[in-house]
Each structure stands twice: as C-alpha cells, then as structure tokens.
Amino acid sequence: MSLLNRPSDNRPGPKDFARRIRAHTLRMVHAAKASHIGGCLSMADILAVLYTRILRVDPDDPQLAGRDRFVLSKGHATAVLYAALGECGFFPLSELDTYCRDGSIFTGHVSHAVPGVEVSTGSLGHGLPMAIGMALVARAAGNGSRAFCLLSDGECDEGSNWEGILFAPHHKLDNLCVIVDFNKIQSFGTVAEVLNLDPFAEKWRSFGWHVVEIDGHDVAALERVLSAMPAPSARPTVVIAHTIKGKGVSFMENKLEWHYRSPSDELLAQALAELAS
C-alpha cells in the first residue's frame, strides 16, 4: 500500500508535477489530434495540488475503502487527469500514448475503466450529484474521507448542478468540496456572452456554501484552501478558482479556438519549449 499525501509524504512539489502533466497533455492531444487542451491546461495546477498534497488515494489499491473521492465533472478535460494519474503511478506512464487510440481504455471523455478514475462523465452536470452521494456515505461511515468535485464554469448552466448546490448545504455536507475551474470561456463563447454566471460567488454564498475565491494557478493558495477540508462551518466548500484557459502556453491562453484545436508539430514543439523554460 502506498497511500498518497500522508503528512509524512515528501513527494515532488505541485509546480513540477503541473509542468509534467501539462507536457503529457500537450503530447497526448497532439498525437490523438484531439480537442479540449485549453480546459486541460486551466485545471492542471488544481490537479497538481490535489494529487501531490491533498487526496488520500492509493495507486496500488485504487478501490481502497475510505479513500478520498475525486470526481471530474468536466469529463472532456480528461487528458490532464489521465496524465496526473499516470504520474502518481496508477498505471505506467507509457499508457498515456494510447489516449483516444483504437481499443484503448483512455477515451476522450473520462472513463472509469482507467485505474484511479472514480466515475465516467462527459455529459455535463452529472459529477456533482454523484460526488454528493459519495460524501453522504463517507460521512455516515465516519472515516474522514472527503469528496472533491471539479466543475467547469460552462457546466454551471446545467440545472442538475443547481439541484445539487441546493442539496449539499441543506444536509451540511462539510466533507464535500467543489472546485470550479472558472476560466471564463465555454464551448461557444465567453461565459459572460453565453450565459452570465455573475455574481457567481454570491450565488453559491446565498445557497449556503462556504465560498473561497482564489487564483487557480497559485499552488500555495490552492494547497492552503484544500487542506482546510472538511470545512469548519458545517457547510460544503466551493473553491472558485479563477483560471486562464490554455494556461502555460502563451498562444493558447484565453483563446476559444483551443477548446477545439489540436496543435501542429511546430506548435507542439513551441508549447513544450515554453513549458520547459
């Protein structure tokens, strides 16, 4: 057994981990000619903190009883999660090369066939209710396990999320933490243009959540906030992580087109060089 993130752990820091999973993701999306690189890069620092500092999960025993649960609700941004799980040792890193290939378990929306993945998503608005169910059982078991759920901003258009957002504070689910990758861009435009979420934090607060707004690329701030779980106030926590879509690759940052495009050989080399510098 090799439980991650025990207090005694001395694992590589989140910054280095984030750099590595960004690079894996760029190579995977390039090789597969796949999409969704922008939303993968915006959440890379969040995953890096979760998998190097927070989640109590075991790469040698992915179904370990009493583990923390991580639910990726924005299932399209799966390449970077696969990369993070590979970095943690849930499977050999070489398997990332099969992403989206014929016969691979590494599908283009997150698949629970992959060791370390809790649930498959892809249709938006499904992750939060499932994470709530996991948090309810963990609380009943009293084993200290927590449920983390990563939402995109665009999927906050889905009514099913707001059903869950109403439910969790009513049931005082203090072992539930939602993280919103608030990169301000969704599938077909900016959040402000398509369906404005503002005032976003106030909405959560008025529903009864413990709301924390941070820079989603500040790994120290992420670690500080996510370490404070369960929340002290008998409320679920939402971390509104202000992020930049395409973060880390200058020509992809804040560009809607990188929700869809796959980098050419030249752009891949340029992106990897930027990450390495």
Partner: peptide
C-alpha cells in the same frame, strides 16, 4: 436528476 446521481454515488460507495 440530483436524486439519480446521488443514488449512483451512494451505490458506487458500496
């Protein structure tokens, strides 16, 4: 929708 998703989450916890 929330009920069905929560049920799945509870069931996937055993």
């Amino acid at each position: 929708q929330n009920m069905a998703g929560i049920a799945a989450g509870i069931a996937l916890s055993g």
